[in-house]
């Protein structure tokens, strides 16, 4: 029941209109090194609660690297080193007392290429709740799986073949399955690393709609190289360039009235 109440509770807790959203995650002076190479040169950024923040910029600018810092996925790379302060609800996530497993359960991630486990659709979604002990008993798990698939907008398409392998789905469906998998552990933040780059336009439209719906309950950070996508789905946009964050602001403002000429150049397609 825990998981479900969790989902319910969040749905009820939408912020009231007019109130400025709180800051969910905060980065101050974040630097990342891969061996001797510096990938990020001191990033300051606030991620606001229950909003979609888009990170844009030319490839190699460090936006994915920054995203991977937010749930410490960079820990899995031997040579990566992170400096600076990064908080979740005001707590330093690189603090020794923070448990990385717990952190990643709270800050979920969806990857560039759909990466369903070579298991059934059901097992893919139930995997997270299972390892974290979020569902007691089969009935509860069934419910979590159904809820998550519904939220990911996949339920109607797969409800009759939950036992079939997740790798048998189409690319767009696979990516929604991965989103369902991430939702199933009731994260507070969902990180998306170019979630549509491997998908066709129709599947992309599906995912974008989904992101817009998910905003009600989750804080979302999305990396994209597609500016139209950023404009469509996000409320705030940060522009990265050569390992620096050039500019951040409301999406509308960034796209209509950028302050920095690099941002302007990128948005108008002078480079990218």
């Amino acid at each position: 029941m825990v998981a479900q109440t969790q989902i319910q509770a969040r749905a009820d807790a939408r912020p009231q209109g007019g109130v400025a959203p709180a800051v969910k995650m905060e980065a101050r002076g974040v630097k990342v090194f891969y061996g001797a190479k510096q990938a990020l040169k001191g990033i300051d950024l606030d991620v606001r609660d229950r909003q979609v923040t888009a990170l844009i910029g030319p490839s190699g600018c460090g936006k994915s690297t920054f995203l991977r810092c937010l749930n410490r996925m960079n820990d899995t790379i031997d040579i990566a080193r992170v400096e600076g302060l990064m908080t979740l609800d005001g707590q330093d996530i690189y603090d020794r007392s923070i448990d990385v497993v717990q952190l990643r359960a709270r800050v979920g991630m969806v990857f560039q290429k759909p990466n369903p486990f070579p298991k059934s659709i059901y097992d893919n979604v139930s995997y997270g709740p299972k390892i974290h002990g979020l569902a007691a008993g089969k009935d509860e798990m069934d419910e979590v799986v159904e809820k998550s698939l519904q939220r990911a907008g996949l339920w109607n398409e797969v409800k009759d073949r939950l036992r079939e392998p997740g790798t048998g789905l189409s690319g767009g469906q696979q990516q929604r399955l991965c989103i369902a998998r991430a939702i199933a552990v009731s994260p507070e933040v969902i990180l998306m690393d170019e979630p549509c780059s491997a998908l066709d336009p129709i599947a992309t439209a599906h995912i974008e709609e989904l992101i817009d719906e998910l905003r009600a309950n989750y804080t979302i950070v999305i990396v994209t190289h597609n500016m139209q996508q950023a404009a469509r789905v996000s409320q705030r946009t940060a522009f990265f360039h050569l390992g620096e964050m050039v500019e951040v602001g409301d999406t509308e403002e960034i796209f209509t009235n950028p302050h920095d000429e690099r941002t302007q150049g990128y948005i108008t397609g002078r480079y990218g």
């Binding site: 749930n71 996925m73 899995t76 497993v101 717990q102 952190l103 990643r104 359960a105 709270r106 979920g108 991630m109 969806v110 990857f111 290429k113 990466n115 369903p116 486990f117 070579p118 995997y127 997270g128 390892i131 974290h132 991965c178 998998r181 991430a182 552990v185 990180l191």
Partner: peptide, 12 residues
């Protein structure tokens, strides 16, 4: 990517 998928969910 499969490992990342599991780590991203908070698996040890």
């Amino acid at each position: 990517s499969l490992r990342d998928g599991a780590y991203g969910l908070g698996a040890t």
